[in-house]
């Protein structure tokens, strides 16, 4: 006997809706669980004190500093490269074999797992360039890791700038470079900042690549050649070595809040950007 389509439709919707709810529930549970266990331990002393006894006591101040400095350095390196790549792809050339190769390379780079970036950073920056386990090695490695994200979002931002803007600028006698610098880039800025935020989020949550290149020293760095420890790494060490669950939860709560805030800022900015463009 054939089941009437009306009933199969009802069954299908129930099943699909159930799957969606389950997905959302699991993801929300993870965040709620970590915040509920960790937030009570997040006090002002926790945020502003040095860690003591390998992290069993004290706070995470130098680790917060490391978490700020390392992604910042990565962005300083990746931003000009990423935006420059996007400018070339959008403003200076048509689709050629070369742009296809560049796009292919960017897509491949985006899919490489972080452990491979870590291995590469370990051989090249730490070893061959003699930078050691340092802020600089870690920053360079993370810069390569987030380069594809920045290229892609910048490209989208540049393409969203109406073509007429460029035509007007060129018709007034501006060169291509003047047009890019004075007209296209300022208009694409919010979109580019979105890419920056997404890259920042990835850097903050990265662990494997950071351990291999920036090391794990939990002290205030005094130069770019000092090792640093980020919150993700600190959390990993505390949790895996079973040093202190309480401090691990606290670090995880700060880490999750930081990542969510950064990503939220990215989406908010992208939305504002799209809405302004739509008008």
């Amino acid at each position: 006997m054939r089941v009437p389509p009306k009933y199969t439709q009802m069954a299908a919707i129930t099943l699909l809706g159930g799957a969606t709810l389950l997905t959302l529930a699991v993801l929300v549970f993870i965040i709620a669980f970590v915040l509920e266990k960790g937030l009570p331990g997040v006090t002002w002393t926790f945020l502003s004190a040095e860690p003591q006894d390998m992290g069993r006591a004290g706070g995470i101040f130098p680790i917060i500093v490391g978490t700020l400095l390392l992604p910042l350095l990565a962005l300083v390196i990746a931003l000009p490269l990423g935006v420059g790549s996007a400018v070339y792809l959008c403003e200076y050339t048509r689709e050629t074999r070369l742009t296809r190769v560049i796009r292919f390379g960017t897509d491949c780079l985006a899919g490489i797992p972080s452990i491979i970036f870590g291995l590469f950073g370990l051989v090249f920056f730490v070893g061959i360039l003699h930078l050691g386990w340092s802020l600089l090695s870690g920053g360079l490695t993370l810069a390569i890791m987030i380069l594809p994200t920045i290229i892609r979002t910048s490209e989208e931002a540049l393409r969203a700038v109406p073509y007429a803007y460029r035509e007007v600028s060129c018709s007034m006698g501006a060169t291509r470079w003047e047009t890019v610098r004075r007209v296209v880039l300022p208009n694409a800025l919010p979109g580019i900042v979105t890419g920056v935020m997404l890259g920042l989020g990835r850097c903050i949550s990265e662990t494997a690549a950071v351990i291999f290149t920036a090391g794990t020293v939990a002290a205030m760095p005094t130069s770019a050649f000092d090792s640093v420890r980020t919150m993700a790494v600190h959390f990993y060490l505390l949790a895996r070595e079973g040093i202190s669950n309480e401090k691990a939860y606290g670090t995880a709560a700060v880490l999750i809040l930081a990542v969510l805030l950064v990503n939220l800022a990215a989406y908010w900015m992208m939305h504002a950007f799209i809405r302004r463009r739509a008008r």
């Binding site: 070339y88 491979i116 051989v123 380069l147």
Partner: peptide, 29 residues
Amino acid sequence: ISGDKIAKYVFLAIACSAIASLLLIALFI
């Protein structure tokens, strides 16, 4: 015009950074 040409080649060189990184990673691994 020549300044604009220079800008173009600078951007071209930058645009190769992603593919260069990929090749470097593959090479050293």
